[in-house]
């Protein structure tokens, strides 16, 4: 049975390091698939104007397309070129919750993410996405610094 690793990217350098770590990890397995995931931070409980709501579907498509072409697709292509079995996914939602769900839906054996900087007040209070993921994940999580 093939092993699946989920790598959470955020478009930063630490994300790249997480990806490199996952590659290294995957090379130890005989059959391993890497799923590159990018989560667009989104909450169903925000306040929007009627006009924003009207255009929301279109905006969502644009967001997904930008994340795919700029971040996920290049990473997947590079992995494939290097001979790995790779796929990509872009989702909206709470970062920790969504990465965990992607892992569960794909029967992944672990999640690799980069450490997010914890400078802002909100992050100090509510924790960063990687902190939250470590707390709630249903599979082992590696946080790459």
């Amino acid at each position: 049975m093939s092993v699946r690793i989920i790598v959470g990217l955020d478009g930063t350098e630490t994300g790249e390091r997480a990806l490199a770590f996952a590659r290294d990890l995957a090379s130890h397995y005989e059959a391993c698939e890497i799923t590159v995931a990018y989560v667009i931070e989104w909450s169903p409980f925000t306040f929007q104007t009627a006009e924003e709501n009207e255009k929301r579907h279109k905006r969502r498509e644009e967001e997904i397309s930008i994340a795919t072409t700029r971040i996920v697709a290049p990473a997947v292509d590079a992995l494939k070129e290097a001979g790995f079995n790779a796929s990509g996914v872009v989702k909206h939602g709470d970062v920790a919750e969504t990465l965990n769900r992607i892992a569960a839906d794909n029967n992944a054996s672990q999640i690799v993410v980069g450490r997010t900087s914890s400078g802002s007040i909100t992050k100090r209070i509510f924790g960063s996405a990687s902190q939250n993921l470590v707390v709630m994940a249903s599979v082992p999580v590696t946080v790459v610094v």
Binding site: P44, F45, F47, Q48, N53, R56, H57, G93
Partner: peptide, 11 residues
């Protein structure tokens, strides 16, 4: 997720 939610339409 990412589409207009019930909460958002109500709000």
């Amino acid at each position: 997720a990412g589409e207009v939610s019930h909460f958002q339409a109500l709000a």
